[in-house]
Structures are given as C-alpha cells and as structure tokens.
Amino acid sequence: MFGPLVGQAATARVRAQVGRRGGAGGAGAAERPRPGAGRIGMIAAGAFVMDPADGFPVGTPYGMPASLSRHSYAHFAAGSVTFTALIAACYVLGRHFGRAGNRGRALTSRVAGTAPLLGNGWAMSGGEAGTLTLAIGVITAMARISATAFRYRRGL
C-alpha cells in the first residue's frame, strides 16, 4: 500500500537533490521539483478503483466490460498524472547527467523514462498484456530513480 507513495517521495527527493547539486546550470535551474503531482495522482488513483475486468480480481470473467464507470475514468486520469510525473523525473535526471558529462547515466535515465511512456501507451490502447507492459515500464523507471537516489544518498 505504501510502496508507491514511498517511490513517489523518493522521486521528489532525488529531483530536489539533483536540482540543488546541479548549481546554476543544473537541472534545478530550468525545472523546479513538483513532488505534489505524483503524490496527488497516486492517492487519487487509489481512491478511484478500476472496474473488475480481464480476470482481475479472481473470478471476474476475461474481457473488458461493455462500459466503464466514472471511477475507472478517474483512475485512468490520476494514473496518467502519476506516470507523467515519473517520466518527467527520469527525463530531468537524463538532462542533469547529460549536462554533467555522464552520458551513460543520461542515456539510461532517458530510456527508463521512455519505458513507462511506451508501457502506458500500450496499456491505454488496449494492447495485449497492457498491464504487464505498464508494470515493466514503471519498474524500470523506479529502479533508475532508486539507483540515482542511492548514489546521491551515499555521496557516490
């Protein structure tokens, strides 16, 4: 339950640290950390639950329901806000590392930011195993942000 909220808090913390350590020309000069978007989106996505579909929860018939409720649409919107914040955090890290001359970390940050973008697009389009592709993308981005947080926390 608290795992995603901790992840969003870590994202905000990393973004703030990168901005602080970046100095005048760092990532914080152009992009100010906006931790509220991810947190609010995550809370709203939890408050507005998706309709049962495609075998979830257990016992639900496979396939999508004929129509979606307002709660499902609100869940989609809140999730989109949260994923956009996650994607933006990865791209901010990519820009920071690129300016710092660390091309490898810049590239992996941008790839990690692109993964949930593609996963979310595939899931929203109704693609096969959309939830799985979205999960893989989000885990990739969270892993990249976690690795960055670890490095900054350890002073590496």
Rank of each mutant, 00 (worst) to 15 (best):
M1P: 09
V6C: 15
Q8M: 13
A9C: 15
T11G: 13
A12P: 04
R13T: 14
R13H: 15
V14E: 03
A16Q: 01
V18L: 10
R20Y: 06
R20Q: 04
R21N: 00
R21Y: 10
G22I: 11
G22A: 09
G25Y: 13
A29F: 11
A29H: 03
A30G: 09
A30I: 12
E31G: 00
E31H: 07
E31F: 01
R32Q: 09
G36H: 13
G36N: 07
G38C: 15
R39S: 15
G41M: 11
G41C: 14
M42V: 15
I43Q: 14
A44C: 11
A45H: 10
V49Q: 12
A53W: 10
A53N: 10
G55A: 06
P57R: 10
V58A: 01
V58T: 03
G59D: 02
Y62M: 00
G63H: 04
G63A: 08
S67F: 01
L68R: 01
S69Q: 00
Y73C: 08
F76S: 05
A77I: 13
A77T: 13
S80R: 11
V81P: 06
V81C: 06
T82H: 04
A85N: 14
A89Q: 14
Y91R: 11
Y91H: 11
V92Q: 06
L93C: 10
G94F: 08
G94Q: 12
H96N: 06
F97A: 15
G104D: 08
R105H: 13
A106G: 12
A106E: 10
A106W: 04
T108C: 13
T108A: 12
G113I: 05
P116I: 04
P116G: 03
G119H: 01
W122N: 12
A123C: 07
S125L: 08
G126M: 05
G127M: 05
E128A: 11
E128R: 09
A129M: 04
G130N: 02
T131W: 07
T133M: 05
G137R: 00
T140P: 02
M142T: 05
R144N: 07
I145D: 00
I145L: 00
A147Q: 05
T148F: 04
R151H: 02
R154G: 02
G155S: 03
G155D: 01
